[in-house]
Amino acid sequence: MKKDRKIIIEIKDLCKNYGKARGVTKVDLKVYEGETFGFIGPNGSGKSTTIRTMLNFLFPTKGEIKIFGLNAVTDSSSIKKDIGYVPSEVNYYEHMKVIDLLNFAASFHDNVDSKRIKYLCDKFELQENKKINELSFGNKKKISIIQALLHHPKLLILDEPTNGLDPLMQKRVFEVLEEEKENGMTIFLSSHNLSEVEKYCDRVGIIKEGEIVDIKDVSKINFGTTKKIVINTDKKIKLKLSGITDESYINNELHFKYEGDINVLLKEINKYEIKDIAILPLTLEDSFMEYYGSR
């Protein structure tokens, strides 16, 4: 199926060095039209460097990035006509009013009218006549989302888009993104919020220490019979069973993953005095957490 779909982002053998410091060493990935591609990895793994190189904020040391089939360095300006970008940090001209900033953002495109600005401001409950320096971080974040969506971009690149937003607004963001997706918009979402990634992404790319270590199709991830077990106990217990992994104590709680017959596990636990037990299904978040482990 993917073979028939148009490639929107194609990154081949990307390497970006900052002198002695590592940025990214080997990034290869493809993002297809209309999909929501999650991009996750620990802090300093190279997520922002990859995004910034895609947007030509940085020049690649090696490799090539194509967006809409165009070179991200030489055709950067043409590419940006159809890109919306929501940065993780929000820095705008502080002396400006919200409406002036949005009009300035709109002036780079010929398909934005005042109705569109009003629609998005209403949607995100943002006061247009406030000065930017009077706004909270969350409201500035709303500006960054609105300015990125104004021109109905074909590709939306989001770097921690819901960071700083209240839960209601976080939900609203994805409602609006779903609306835009119906028009064929492709989304590239970098986030530390793994449940967000699990809920909204079609595929997920995992980057660690500057390299793409895995790309997963969210719908095809199968956890088998593995369960997540949490036992609350006053005394430390040691279960002698095969199939137990990732064992750890957090306060008075024993956390581990178990793959095997649940009856066998319960019999083993029954040998000890416990206060409480939770048997939980594994989520994508648990699966991703392994990539956030030791570096």
């Binding site: 947007l55 904020f57 940065p87 820095n91 001209y93 780079f108 495109h109």
Partner: peptide
Amino acid sequence: GNKTIEFLYSKQITRMQ
């Protein structure tokens, strides 16, 4: 310095412009 350059660079405008 004000980090507004990130906003500008994300728009359809070249460094030359």
